[in-house]
Design a protein around this nucleic acid. Sequence first.
RNA 1: GCGGACGUGGCGGAAUUGGUAGACGCAAGGGACUUAAAAUCCCUCGAUCUCUGAUCGUACGGGUUCGAUUCCCGUCGUCCGCACCA
Length: 894
Amino acid sequence: MSGALCQLLSEKHPMATERYNPRTSEPKWQKAWAEKKLFEAQNDDPKPKYYVLEMFPYPSGKIHIGHTRNYTMGDVVARYKRARGFNVLHPMGWDAFGMPAENAAMQNKVHPKDWTYENIAVMREQLKMMGLSLDWAREFATCDVDYYHRQQMLFLDFVEKGLVTRKSSKVNWDPEDMTVLANEQVIDGRGWRSGALVEQRELTQWFFKITEFAQDLLDSLDRLDEWPEKVKLMQHNWIGRSEGLLIRWPLAVASSDKIGGDTRELEVYTTRPDTIFGASFMAVAADHPLARKAAESNVELAKFIEEVRHMGTSVAALETAEKKGFDTGIRVVHPFDETWTLPVYVANFVLMEYGTGAIFGCPSGDQRDLDFANKYGLPVIPVVMPEDADAKTFQVIEEAYVDDGVMINSRFLDGMKPEKAFNEVAKLLEEKTIGGRPMAERKVNFRLRDWGISRQRYWGCPIPMIHCEACGVVPVPKADLPVKLPDDIEFDRPGNPLDRHPTWRHVKCPQCGRDARRETDTMDTFVDSSWYFARFTAPWANEPTEPKAADEWLAVDQYIGGIEHAILHLLYSRFFTRAMRETGHLNLAEPFKGLFTQGMVVHETYRVGGPSNNGRWLSPSEVRLEDIDGKRHAVEIATGEEATIGALEKMSKSKKNTVSPEEITDGYGADTARWFMLSDSPPERDVEWTDEGAAGAHRFVQRVWRLVQIAAEQLPGVKPVAAKDGEAGAVSKSAHKILKAVGEDIEKLGFNRAIARIYELANVLATPLNDVAEGKADAALKGACREAVEIMVHIIAPVMPHLAEECWQALGGAEMVAERPWPVFDPALVVDNEIVLPVQVNGKKRGDLTIARDADQGAVEKAVLALDFVQKALEGKAPRKVIIVPQRIVNVVA
RNA sequence: GCGGACGUGGCGGAAUUGGUAGACGCAAGGGACUUAAAAUCCCUCGAUCUCUGAUCGUACGGGUUCGAUUCCCGUCGUCCGCACCA
């Protein structure tokens, strides 16, 4: 910029520039929106529908900034879609059952109900301060009797349809507290409270038969084209369909006799029957019937099984533990060789839940089997080798060979490809018989297990079933619902308070009228969150849904939530929608049309007393950051002690690196917080909260306000008109290009890109608006500026709705921006007549070519070859090749 | 352990999905204005060198291509999920 212009800009404008004050503006507009009920969706609205939903929060006590980023994303979409003429449903609720309420009850002697509803009240106010365009009329909490009543109705309908079953499964048992522990409550194999060694226990529990939908849940993934590929892949792998062979290995006669003689075979599921000649051992789960049988006469083995049972139930714990086995002494006979017997081990890495709970180990073709074989001195026979290897010298010692290749050391299979060998083994074993059955059967197996929903806890939805000694398990009649949680409970002892309640569990059997007892298990909280999105479509309904409303609103057009829910919550919801379809509550299979998984908000951590485990964590507000010789230091304000700056981590209470929304809204206002959270970082990635970033965002708020004030004072009554040429034309072209880009970016949830474009528009407007203020603008520039400012106000509105309203009012707008349509760009203004083509020589950029947009390839080539830097590079020779990518780039190969 | 991602200046990131690497913002430095400060405005800002130019540069090492941040193979690092946290 020239010195003269600098001088002009520095001259004081005649008007006083008042700073924008969010503390007065934001509540004012929030009230105005609420009074007009702008965000309450009507089910009978004839406009096209759009359902945007963010995963609802657990009411842990306070909203933190991570929540608000999530909700702001949804809010931007909701406000944008509303402006585009959609009937938008954007509801909010509370995932309100769960363990933390019970923990609070035990620690602080608060009733889980009071604790939860108090938290909800606090968090609702926090959300309201953020200016989210939510339909609060549809709000509910999953712990509302009204909601779990309908969930019990759904449960009974599922029971009737045969979608519910009872079976035995394992839980983490804390022998000291006499209670069931969640996986997260098991730390290094011990109970988090008692410190006692946890053991596995079998309990009869309730399950939803999600496995009946396994194939459909898998196949339907292909049609979810608005889901991230990675989530679909994760679900694909989780469902884990495999085609394999069930092989029945005969027990050696001596072995069979040893364990009583009535067990004569070992059933094994394998996806690699082709490697059957590489087998060197069998391994069964610790709770496999054969293991138990063998342990009856083997004290050492019983001890080993006991040890395995102390590992906790989580797969991660099992698989990261050292691979261990114990030889049962039992031997099986090889299906293709009666003289070949193999040992049967009990192994800690074999899971009873998967397949048949027994495997055959082929060390050369599986790394885990190889490690196991090496540890216990079992033979390693390579049976598949790369096609170009030599069968005589090919060896497997430390590293298993798992790729495709050719069969070796496998008798009649030698030379085949593994796939053919698979079919050959299957065919031959299907023909053989054992105990009157074929020795092998082809079987499709899923890794997916049925969904265990029983929880031995108080704060959850009671399972509406009754146990009668005469009639068995009887459903509570629908007329007797809801089964309400009793309020008078004690948390003075661990365990489930429902179990020891004096009266609650006693009930008459609905069938025979005799004394019976209620089921005291409550449902997994994932059940609550598996259908809340459907309930939002008619939260007033007496039935779980109003099927018409559900079918009209669903699927959710845009669902937004954390990647941590990529598997369980989303898979369970997909199951639930199918089950609700079978029971007539709605009529679709897939609940979420578009899915977006956003990143977390992270913050540095600070601790004093060294980085070791005994350090003391400090919150950002307790720390002063200093810059010494370019190095950042953190000092505890209270003591002056130097604190260690730790890694960026997910905000958590334990590490005290949380930032609450009030810390920003109290100072800068909600719009600044919303703007900052969406700028810079792409929404799917984590965002680091920094004070500098928030301050920068706030500077922009004030900058927009200043620009609008100039326009409001200098351009009153000026008609907004786009210009085609000159300085005014440049303003209009930029404004329309940016308007177009911002719309496209929001559609793609590219909020950070949209924000970068809006910054550009503000930059573009700065000089012309100053010209206007200096009285140097002609009518065309005034009209163009007025139009561009109005565009700017509308495109900031989804992210900074309060500021937009204040600006629009200053510009003399009659209605609120929240009620106004999205501006329309002029297609003629978003294309340029001349384009600048980068010109490369041998793939390196050497200059530009400015040429008419519609110039044909020949004209482009001619113009490029005439450029002096191209001539110089060619040294008078003809180019070997000229690659012209239309509208993109030119590459001259010399 | 298994599964899934990510890695670009001092920092957050952009790059029309194979076509100008570093848009936009933050931080930093310099300047204007001011009695001064804040605020605001302007300029510079990947590295190196023989500095109006050239070379290198997108975690690291290879490969495919006229052209690679983008695709392929390998290595390293960070993060998420693993079924009773929500």
